[in-house]
């Protein structure tokens, strides 16, 4: 009889969950898919908000389009892969190595690409991401060494599989750490390239434009700021947040044009970016400090 009562209670719970499965506020380890009710000016109820960061492929692509020479000293050496053991360090450095892999790919450094992919595979194993989900791509990259596009797809799949597996297993914070590691390394490339070309306005603007990604990054970290893994670096992220909030970007009214043949729409609007040399210096210093704490 008691068992029947338990089954009944669990059935009711299942029913409630089915009806309201998108309105619960998740725990710290589920911050990537923030779920809550929010009222907007139209009184609409938003069931679910996804916050994404641009992938390291996009970030490195956009930063390195300035065509600076290949500089391996910018990368975190693959040998350091064995230095990491905590989940946070493993995931953050998964992101760091992921961006390094993209850097190698942009400069057609295929042998280095393989080394970095191997390092990512090791980190996947340590993060207990099953091989079929996270790391069955070494042979494929070797087979496709001459095909740049396939390397990008392999990188993309590696990220997608890790992200999917971690979210499926309610390890959203670990997935977030991977994204953050990738973002930090992309910014590390950008600020170092600025030091080589201090008058490079395109690059300066690209750094300023990270203001938006940074808003998402801080929202992702918000629910996890008390996590022990973030004790050292969260205050640095907060300092960076203050700087980015003072970076000003304004837009003209967009002109939307859709090509009727290709069905591709262009969003045409210019932006005006205001960032000072001092702000760039502060961003450079903080990115250096954050990266050092991650890779150290």
């Amino acid at each position: 009889m008691k068992l029947f009562q338990l089954v009944f209670i669990l059935s009711i719970l299942t029913l409630i969950y089915s009806c309201k499965n998108n309105t619960k506020k998740d725990a710290v380890d589920d911050i990537n898919n923030i779920e809550f009710d929010a009222e907007s000016e139209q009184d609409k109820t938003i069931t679910k908000i996804f916050l994404n960061l641009p992938s390291p492929i996009e970030l490195t692509n956009t930063i390195l389009s300035t065509k600076n020479p290949y500089n391996p000293e910018l990368l975190n050496p693959v040998e350091k892969v064995n230095n990491y053991s905590t989940t946070a360090k493993l995931a953050l450095n998964f992101g760091i190595f992921g961006a390094d892999l993209c850097y190698c790919r942009v400069y057609d450094q295929l042998q280095s690409s393989i080394s970095y992919l191997s390092a990512i595979r090791k980190l996947s194993e340590k993060l207990q991401i099953p091989e079929e989900e996270g790391a069955e791509t070494i042979n494929r990259i070797e087979e496709n060494m001459s095909n740049r596009d396939s390397i990008f797809h392999i990188i993309s799949e590696t990220y997608a599989n890790a992200d999917g597996y971690l979210k499926e297993n309610e390890r959203d914070l670990t997935a977030t750490f991977i994204l953050i590691g990738g973002w930090v390394e992309g910014m590390h490339f950008a600020v170092n390239l600025i030091e080589e070309n201090s008058d490079n306005l395109i690059l300066i603007n690209k750094i300023a434009e990270q203001k938006y990604s940074y808003q998402n990054l801080m929202s992702l970290l918000e629910g996890a700021k008390d996590n022990s893994a973030l004790i050292e670096i969260y205050p640095l992220f907060e300092k960076l947040d203050v700087i980015f909030k003072n970076v000003e970007i304004t837009y003209e009214e967009p002109i939307i044009v859709t090509d009727q043949e290709t069905k591709i729409t262009t969003i045409d609007n210019d932006s005006k970016i205001s960032i000072t040399t001092e702000q760039i210096k502060e961003i450079t210093q903080l990115i250096g400090e954050i990266r050092e704490k991650i890779i150290g």
Binding site: N21, N33, K44, I46, K48, F50, L51, N52, S213
Partner: peptide, 14 residues
């Protein structure tokens, strides 16, 4: 995500 009729989901991205 599993959504029901009337639900709204948003993705924010740069």
């Amino acid at each position: 995500a599993v959504l029901n009729e009337g639900d709204i989901a948003e993705l924010m991205l740069t």
